[in-house]
């Protein structure tokens, strides 16, 4: 796997930009897909949001100063795109973001045909009981193994608030699974 500095150097050069984007998708596509899909749930919506994320990266490539890590920047764009997408969809359909996520999960058939282990499906169900922001913190901490400082940079929240949010999320998930 190529490191961020190499990808960044290729992205900055118009001659190698397209190759760099292919490399960017190869390096971060899987993680970003899981992150976005965990938020918007449907595969088709995830595909749209993920493509928009990479197009946004291309449009704003000049504004990336290199102060943060490349993947932190990618996560921030992906998270904002996902939340904006969900908010718009929720406004159009007139239901809350959380209700929307649950109904997407139920109608997609993933409830019964989940890839991987059954526990992953159960955890996903438990996650959908949480408020959208708490889900986000849990995903980034538990699945993506980001540090609190990195999550704070992505979400614009304090480390203290994130720790509290993650602690609440874990407690609620454990309670939900214990009650099954």
């Amino acid at each position: 796997m190529k490191d961020d500095a190499f990808i960044w150097a290729q992205l900055s050069d118009p001659a190698t930009q397209e190759r760099a984007f292919a490399l960017l998708v190869k390096t971060y596509g899987k993680r970003l897909y899981a992150h976005i899909r965990g938020i918007v749930i449907s595969h088709d919506d995830t595909n749209d949001v993920l493509q928009n994320t990479f197009i946004k990266v291309f449009r704003h490539i000049d504004s990336f100063k290199g102060d943060s890590k490349l993947y932190t920047w990618l996560y921030r764009i992906a998270t904002n795109e996902s939340l904006t997408f969900l908010e718009q969809k929720s406004r159009k359909s007139g239901v809350s973001i959380e209700q929307l996520q649950v109904s997407e999960f139920e109608t997609s058939g993933l409830d019964n045909e989940m890839d991987g282990e059954a526990i992953a499906a159960t955890l996903q169900k438990a996650l959908l009981q949480l408020p959208a922001k708490q889900q986000l913190v849990f995903r980034m901490k538990y699945f993506d193994e980001l540090t609190y400082e990195e999550i704070a940079e992505i979400t614009g929240t304090t480390v203290g608030a994130l720790k509290a949010s993650y602690h609440h999320a874990v407690r609620k998930i454990e309670d939900f699974i214990r009650a099954l």
Partner: peptide
């Protein structure tokens, strides 16, 4: 460690 439910 539980893997994410959705994988590409």
């Amino acid at each position: 460690k539980i893997k994410p439910a959705f994988e590409a």
